[in-house]
């Protein structure tokens, strides 16, 4: 077995496309690493501008980028590293109105969002469009990563059927986060994306990695499809995108 991607696998990466939801902590390493590995097209979806408090962990952005659209700052870094990678800019908020149309333009969706409404929206749109999804989340010193492929394993709703009560989970701003944490979780996510796109290796479908930075320990949890899942189960009840802000209690977290 070759240590690196074979020429055929590299050709698959060069012909592939990925949509990054969020160009923040998780999206930062992903953008660099997918471009470096030779992914052909990367879509950046984020409506935010770079803030000084982002720079402690969002290495896609320089100090001089404060105030700039994150998607523009991200494109500049990708192009400097590998000009052949095409970058699409989507400086918009992902909504039930634009998600399906956006997702069908890409081979894989990588969820680097920071709120529950977006996570459910990304999940449902991936199931409805049949797109693989790499999921990651971070909190203080802890992180989780898995891969969802429609038809091959569980989806986000199989694992978390209902969102937590509004206000019960503090945000990054409220709880803090060790800066290097999204670097680690995002890199694991990028590796998953590269495996799905190249066809090489065993992905995390059916497995959830649970990481503790304080312990430097990674545990694996087996996760299963829920036959009663309202979107990917045997008798789905969700056939189109819903109002996710309302579903999550009107709080974007």
């Amino acid at each position: 077995m070759e240590a690196y991607f074979t020429p055929a696998e590299q050709a698959r990466l060069a012909a592939s496309s990925v949509l990054l939801i969020g160009c923040g902590g998780l999206g930062s390493p992903v953008a660099y690493e997918l471009a470096a590995a030779g992914v052909g097209r990367i879509g950046l979806c984020d409506m935010d501008r770079v803030d000084l408090s982002n720079l402690q962990r969002q290495v896609l952005h320089d100090s001089a980028d404060v105030g700039r659209l994150k998607v523009e700052s991200g494109m500049a870094k990708i192009s400097a590293l590998r000009p052949e990678t095409h970058v699409d800019l989507h400086p918009v908020s992902l909504t039930s109105e634009n998600a399906l149309e956006l997702f069908t333009q890409y081979d894989l969706i990588l969820d680097g969002s920071d709120n529950f409404a977006t996570r459910y929206l990304v999940n449902d749109a991936c199931v409805l469009t049949g797109r693989p999804q790499v999921h990651g989340s971070i909190f203080r010193f802890d992180g989780q990563v898995t891969t969802f492929i429609p038809g091959q394993g569980p989806c986000y709703r199989c694992l978390w059927p209902t969102p937590p009560p509004p206000g019960s989970v503090p945000s990054c701003a409220e709880a803090g986060v060790i800066g290097v944490l999204p670097g680690f979780v995002g890199s694991l996510m990028a590796m998953e994306a590269l495996k799905v796109l190249s066809g090489r290796g065993a992905t995390l479908v059916g497995r959830l990695l649970v990481y503790s930075a304080l312990d430097m320990d990674v545990a694996e949890v087996q996760v299963r499809r829920n036959p009663d899942c309202p979107i990917c189960g045997t008798h789905p009840t969700i056939h189109e995108l819903i109002d996710y802000e309302q579903f999550c209690g009107g709080v974007g977290r």
Partner: peptide, 14 residues
Amino acid sequence: SGGVGRVVSAAGGV
């Protein structure tokens, strides 16, 4: 076009 590198970028990241 990706190159014959020695290390996969994302593994280096991890």
